[in-house]
Design a protein around this nucleic acid. Structure first.
Length: 378
RNA sequence: GGGCAGGUGGCGGAGUGGUUAAUCGCACCAGACUGUAAAUCUGGCGUCCUUACGGACUGCGAAGGUUCGAAUCCUUCCCUGCCCA
């Protein structure tokens, strides 16, 4: 059976509708995957996440490897059982932590040596260890290769050398995956492994990276190392250079994106999967996404605004609570504030993807994108 | 009535002759956040003019005084808290 099926492609853009099959269920793409780094979408319960309609969520292998650690996860019977999420689950390998925890690590050919950000103890991550942890111990539906996520800006030499290391790690990741993955399910679904394209902002290196991954052969391909602080005019060409070398028959995942604007741009170029901490992090920092634009809910003008966060929104927060009350909750330091905005923002992202899928379905992508931007930025 | 302590920007609270438009915290105003070491971080916050740079004015209970210079020293007054009658 095909693990990924392109259901429909847009005529005028590269956007497409897809169906991705995993041992824990199917995913309609383009999809947004909420991020649950430590095994939880911050402030939300699994019941919340189900009610929001999330089809797949993320966990982070680096963080779960450090705590609770492989032993506990093994005894729990894997991540699904441990965190009580029965749907599709994707784990990130720890490549992003090579970027975000740069002060704590040193990279060698063999792997990445970290000083644990928790207790300072030494941790050594290798592609083999992280992929085996994800596929075997954690039982992730989708595992990610260990990669080196580069900071921006970087020199071309550094980007090239780093990309080559990532490609060698991808080769090792795949071998480790074949050895450690669980048997295929009766329905023909099986665990999947995605490669991650790198290359900094250099389009030629981006292309080489994607081509190298395709040579190895993966179930899906991710574009990593983008949306790390570069301007959009730099990001989009780099994205295009990566996508150009990837097969249309495979799912494509833009790691770490993003803003609603960025997601429209990426889907238009053929991306199927997204994840981002923005909806939950910004929620905790008092920012709501709405179809009329983002708003900082602690702004003075919302103190006596008794309407919902977003008109016509049917999320749990909007059905019951006013902007004024949520603003009050933030000013009072109440945890419910960040929770309500998290519910709303995740709902917004999932709704946004539904709008996007509908636009592709109707062959009206360009028009719907224009309509969205006019309202969102207006 | 007597004694002691004290009155500083929205609030709390530093500062006891010049680098003080005034540390700092809170509150308030605004911004940022993109595979989460983040429910965090940045700015702003006397008044007026200026996009900004910058400039003008007012200012540490009130009034007067000493001094080149005062929130800081002196005098008088007003007010607050505690203690004694």
């Amino acid at each position: 059976m095909n693990i990924f099926e392109v259901v429909k492609s847009d005529d005028k853009t590269k956007s497409r509708l897809g169906l991705l099959r995993t041992p824990h269920g199917e995913i309609r793409t383009p999809v947004f995957m909420p991020v649950g780094t430590h095994g939880t979408i911050k402030t939300l319960s699994v019941e919340d996440v189900i009610a929001l309609g999330a089809e797949i969520i993320l966990n982070n292998a680096y963080h779960m490897y450090l705590r609770p650690g492989p032993d506990i996860l093994d005894k729990a019977g894997g991540l699904h059982d441990f965190i009580s999420w029965k749907g599709p689950l994707l784990t990130d390998s720890g490549g992003y932590q090579i970027f975000s925890l740069a002060n704590f690590r040193k990279i060698t050919e063999e792997g990445a040596r970290f000083r644990s950000h928790i207790d300072g103890g030494e941790v050594f991550l290798t592609p083999e260890k992280m992929v085996s942890f994800q596929a075997s111990t954690a039982g992730a539906d989708i595992s990610m290769c260990l990669d080196e996520c580069l900071e921006y800006p970087t020199t071309k030499n550094h980007a090239a050398a780093s990309m080559e290391l990532t490609a060698r790690w991808a080769r090792r990741s795949k071998d480790a995956f074949e050895e450690s993955r669980r048997p295929s399910a009766a329905d023909g679904t099986r665990q999947l492994l995605f490669g991650i394209a790198q290359g900094g902002m250099y389009t030629d290196i981006r292309g080489e990276s994607a081509a190298a991954l395709v040579d190895i052969g993966f179930d899906g391909y991710a574009v990593g190392g983008l949306s790390v602080g570069e301007p959009r005019e730099v990001m989009l060409p780099a994205l295009e250079a990566s996508l150009e070398k990837l097969p249309a028959s495979s799912p494509r995942y833009f790691m770490g994106l993003g803003t609603p604007e960025d997601i429209w741009e990426a889907v238009e170029r053929g991306v199927d999967m997204f994840d981002c901490v923005l909806p939950t992090r910004n929620a905790r920092n008092a920012q709501a996404f709405t179809f009329s634009g983002k708003l900082n809910i602690t702004n003075e003008r919302f103190r006596s605004d008794f309407g919902p966060l977003d008109e016509n929104c049917r999320c749990a927060a909007c059905r019951r609570y006013s902007r004024a009350f949520i603003s009050h909750l933030f000013r009072s330091g109440e945890f419910l504030a960040g929770r309500l905005l998290s519910l709303h923002n995740i709902f917004f992202m999932i709704k946004l993807m539904a709008v996007i899928r509908d636009a592709v379905f109707r062959g009206a992508y360009a028009d719907e994108k224009k309509r969205f931007f006019e309202r969102y930025l207006g």
